[in-house]
Design a protein around this nucleic acid. Structure first.
Length: 903
RNA sequence: GGACGAUUAGCUCAGUUGGUUAGAGCGCUACAUUGACACUGUAGAGGUCAGAAGUUCGAAUCUUCUAUCGUCCA
């Protein structure tokens, strides 16, 4: 073998390490292959296609969830890039307020330092340092996946541009009266020591004790009123006991005073509709500082709130509980109540309790002054655009969830008592008056004084995320007018998990409409949730979360990408096990090996690359002159392309990989390449052979292109070897193939008949135990002339695929000593003299005859049914008649076989 | 408590508006090793479509109820 021929072919075994390293995004990136330019849209009339990467947390590392999510986005982007769009994928990372601050605080804690030791400025320096050092990990890992972002545009939510947008958005909403400051019961995380939004609270079912406590009545010695509570430690903060005004049990007690146990305070018994008559005793303790509903009740009755639980989740210094953890205090007060004789009884009680999303501790309802966004005015249009289909959800059933949230929306608490984040642009003068402005100087100007103190709090991380479609395109305020925004907004497809539909999707829609007057995206694709093989959610603490980098090392990145899409149906949970990646790896190997075969044939019929290039570049599949298998392949290829593009337009990504897998493995490899071998080993001219090879390469190239969005590495590698393409080129920038409408009604029934015939021959061979290395003699008795001609013309094909010696029968004499069968009205006989057991064939035939007979009976009954004849669609009836005719034909032929056998 | 989704072969899943003798992959069984590929090929076994009732000439598919699981919201 010369060097020339070696380079003409692929290595014997596929090495994903080598191939993926070669095309790794560094190469694609170095060439700027994935850069998108607004001028292409604005000046050259190219259609834009924009995808917004959900910015991963800087603290994050790659999970399978990311793999699925980003592979999907990459598939959409690569597909649209290849279908002629100016495809822009906007990457970035999220500063993740609580998560990042926690990570850095933990690190400092190991050195014995708290953030308060450092002070705000120095602590933030530490965070930035940490971010520069470790924050890039997730992006590095994402690059390993081969995703095709425009990395020049990488944005961090704390970058100047993004920060400017956040501040301006705040000021705008404040001036429009949609941001306000107020004292409310909010969700407080005692670990992170910050307020949380309702969405950051996870409800979990847990068992607690429902404690029944009796309160003495001041004016009725010896009489008590009994309440039930799961939070006895907050008894110390009770300001009233409430009953339902329609509850006859307590009519006479309304207006009386009761004594708070332990605390000794006198509180009124009040009547309020809020109280559920059927719950507990029907009497409810009112603790406005520690329960949102109680707070509302207290407001209605002009009662002051008393607080007994502090920011750290410990009791404040009251009645000897000061400094105790709230859960310890709960145990202690239970004992104290028992000693005082106020404890009536204790029941087991299952209920839902809010936990902090980040710290996973029970959230404390906490009365404090916070900043809020009025959501109702924003929700109105956001709901409309989804209802009207301006934004489409895939799958659509998520609209219900979205609608329900929008219709019951509550104001958004956006202030966080953290240091890491966008500081709230509000200043207070010495009188406590608030001045909202972009800078201290502006605030001074507004206030008319320079004695101003800035609000200590920062904004919820999602307050920057909701502007993401705008900020990534350079938006900083409502007057921004730039080319990127004009070319690429609104973006097209958002791929995200349904778990952040409220956090992010809904709020982006609101922000887009409010600040830009236009929806931020058109389609939202909600991904599946990945679980392990037992159905458990993947989590680090369970240890069931495979490291995607390791999976890529073992099976290959293409294999992981392919597999995860193959097993992830739209909007359903996915059970993932690492070993499932064998599917993708095997597929990649198959592509490699099939390409090797094709290239070997190419080498055989073309002297060198130049000769092949000259012929191939002028190859026109319309020129015709293909054999039966070639025509069938081309028709199948075009049909595949139609289904492929349709699946994309319907967001059925899951179908896409199945369409490709089935066509490539099931049609191209299993049938076409086998037929090609037969054709080329036969009596062909060099011209015919070259034509056949060109067709094989042509369809292979089409498969590589259609597969490229899913498996970018191996497809680029092989694509380069089709025509010695320079490495600066990429399949990623080549045009996607479409079907040829001229080919839509080519008759390929000849080849499908041969397929069925071959399958039947193989089945009979196997059934009668014909050894694989021996060829069986086959007699074919055509049911009609046309089929007979097909058989005559394709005897070598039938011989090779069925491993047999086929002959077309000259007369209509049924052979003896044969196993017979019927294929589309044609009979075939496998001559098995010496091999066949007559009893076996008789039994087989009888079984088959019984099968068909009962089927015939069923169809006859159906056709005879008057209801069916009257109601069924004529097409359906015709179809049934045809099925019956075929079955009856089969039946009579098999019966004849049986008769011959019995002679 | 409410809303949504799921339940089809041992496992994981397809199955477009009701009309197939219900499909695929993995796994299993048997056979095949010099010709692209054992990360393979060929053949085979395996299902009362969760259960019940209903609509219909006809239901995996539509309706109702029940059961189990999951998600979201109270």
């Amino acid at each position: 073998m010369t060097d020339q021929t070696v380079s003409f072919n692929l290595e014997k075994t596929y090495n994903h390490h080598e191939v993926e390293d070669r095309w790794r995004s560094a190469h694609w990136e170095a060439l700027g292959s994935f850069h998108a330019e607004s001028s292409q849209v604005l000046n050259n009339g190219k259609a834009p296609y924009t995808v917004l990467m959900p910015p991963p947390n800087v603290t994050g590392s790659l999970t399978l969830g990311h793999v699925l999510n980003h592979t999907l986005q990459d598939i959409f982007i690569r597909y649209n890039r290849m279908t002629g769009h100016e495809a822009l994928w906007l990457p970035g990372t999220d500063h993740a307020g609580i998560a990042t601050q926690t990570v850095v605080e933990k690190k400092l804690k190991k050195e014995g330092i708290t953030r308060h030791d450092l002070g705000r400025k120095e602590f933030l320096d530490h965070v930035w340092q940490w971010r520069d050092e470790y924050g890039g990990l997730i992006l590095k890992q994402l690059r390993r996946l081969g995703i095709s972002c425009d990395w020049r545009r990488n944005l961090f939510t704390m970058d100047d541009r993004a920060s400017k947008a956040v501040i301006n958005a705040f000021i705008t909403l404040y001036r429009d009266g949609l941001i306000y400051r107020g004292t409310r019961i909010i969700n407080w995380c005692p670990v992170s020591q910050t307020a949380l939004s309702d969405e950051e609270v996870i409800m979990k079912t847990r068992k607690d004790q429902l404690v029944y406590v009796q309160y003495a009545l001041v004016n009725h010695p010896g009489r008590y009123i009994t309440i039930a509570t799961v939070r006895p430690e907050t008894i110390l903060a009770d300001v009233a006991i409430a009953v339902n005004p329609r509850d006859p049990r307590y009519h006479d007690l309304v207006g009386e005073l009761a004594v708070v146990p332990v605390a000794g305070r006198h509180i009124p018994v009040i009547a309020d509709d809020y109280v559920d008559i059927d719950f507990g005793t029907g009497a409810l303790k009112i603790t406005p500082a520690h329960d949102a509903n109680d707070y509302e009740v207290a407001k209605r009755h002009n009662l002051q709130a008393i607080s007994v639980v502090g920011k750290d989740g410990k009791m404040t210094d009251t009645f000897g509980y000061g400094g105790m953890d709230r859960f310890d205090a709960r145990k202690k007060i239970l004992k104290d109540l028992e000693e005082l004789g106020n404890l009536v009884r204790v029941e087991e009680y299952e209920h839902n309790v809010g936990y902090s999303e980040r710290a996973d501790v029970v959230v404390e309802p906490y009365l404090s002054e916070q900043w809020f966004v009025k959501m109702a005015p924003l929700a109105e249009r956001a709901l409309e655009v989804v209802n009207d289909g301006d934004i489409r959800f895939h799958p659509p059933h998520w609209i219900n969830t979205y609608r329900h949230w929008m219709e019951n929306i509550r104001d958004w608490c956006i202030s966080r008592q953290l240091w890491w984040g966008h500081r709230i642009p509000a200043w207070y003068d010495t009188e406590g008056k608030v001045w909202v402005a972009a800078t201290y100087e502006e605030a001074c100007h507004l206030a008319g004084t320079d004695k101003l103190l800035q609000d200590d709090d920062v904004l919820d991380t999602w307050f920057s995320s909701w502007l993401w479609p705008l900020t990534t395109l350079g938006w900083t305020d409502q007057h921004t007018d730039n080319d990127d925004l004009n070319a690429f907004y609104p973006t097209n497809t958002l791929v995200t998990g349904p778990d952040i539909i409220f956090f992010w999707v809904a709020r982006m829609i609101m922000a887009g409409l409010y600040f830009k007057g236009e929806v931020p995206f058109r389609d939202v694709y909600f991904t599946s949730i990945i679980r392990d093989m037992k159905g458990f959610k993947l989590s680090k603490s369970l240890g069931n979360s495979p490291d995607p980098i390791k999976v890529m090392d073992t099976y290959g990145t293409d294999a992981l990408r392919f597999t995860i899409i193959y097993i992830a149906p739209l909007g359903q949970d996915v059970l993932f096990g690492e070993e499932k990646c064998e599917l993708g790896r095997n597929f990649a190997t198959k592509i490699w090996n099939a390409s090797r075969l094709v290239f070997m044939q190419r080498e055989k019929y073309f002297g060198n690359h130049e000769e092949f290039a000259a012929v191939y570049q002028n190859f026109d599949p319309r020129s015709g002159g293909f054999d039966l298998a070639g025509q069938w392949l081309l028709a199948g290829f075009y049909d595949m392309l139609n289904r492929y593009h349709a699946a994309f337009s319907q967001f059925k990504v899951h179908d896409i990989v199945r369409i490709l897998y089935d066509f490539f493995w099931g049609d191209y490899c299993a049938w076409y390449l086998e037929a090609l071998k037969v054709q080329l080993s036969g009596d062909v001219t060099r011209d015919e052979a070259q034509k056949a090879v060109c067709l094989a390469v042509y369809v292979l190239e089409g498969i590589l292109k259609t597969l490229h969005p899913v498996m970018p590495f191996i497809t680029d590698e092989i694509w380069h070897q089709i025509l010695q393409r320079p490495s600066e080129e990429s399949i990623a920038l080549s045009p996607m193939p479409y079907s040829d409408p001229e080919y839509s009604d080519i008759d390929v029934s000849g080849f499908t008949l041969i397929q069925k015939l071959v399958a039947e021959v193989r089945s009979l061979r196997s059934l009668f135990g014909v050894p694989h290395n021996s060829e069986a003699e086959i007699l074919l008795w055509p049911g009609n002339n046309a089929d007979g001609l097909v058989f005559e013309a394709n005897l070598p094909l039938i011989a090779a695929l069925g491993q047999c010696i086929p002959k077309v029968m000259a007369d209509g004499e049924r052979p003896r000593h044969a196993a017979g069968s019927v294929v589309e009205g044609n009979e075939l006989f496998v001559l098995l003299e010496g091999l066949i057991s007559f009893d076996k064939e008789r039994a087989r035939l009888q079984k088959e005859i019984n099968n068909i007979s009962s089927y015939v009976a069923a169809v006859q009954k159906k056709l005879a049914n008057k209801g069916f004849a009257d109601n069924a669609h004529p097409d359906v009836i015709a179809k049934e008649r045809e099925k019956l005719r075929e079955a009856e034909d089969n039946l009579s032929k098999l019966n004849s076989n049986l008769t011959v056998l019995n002679d």
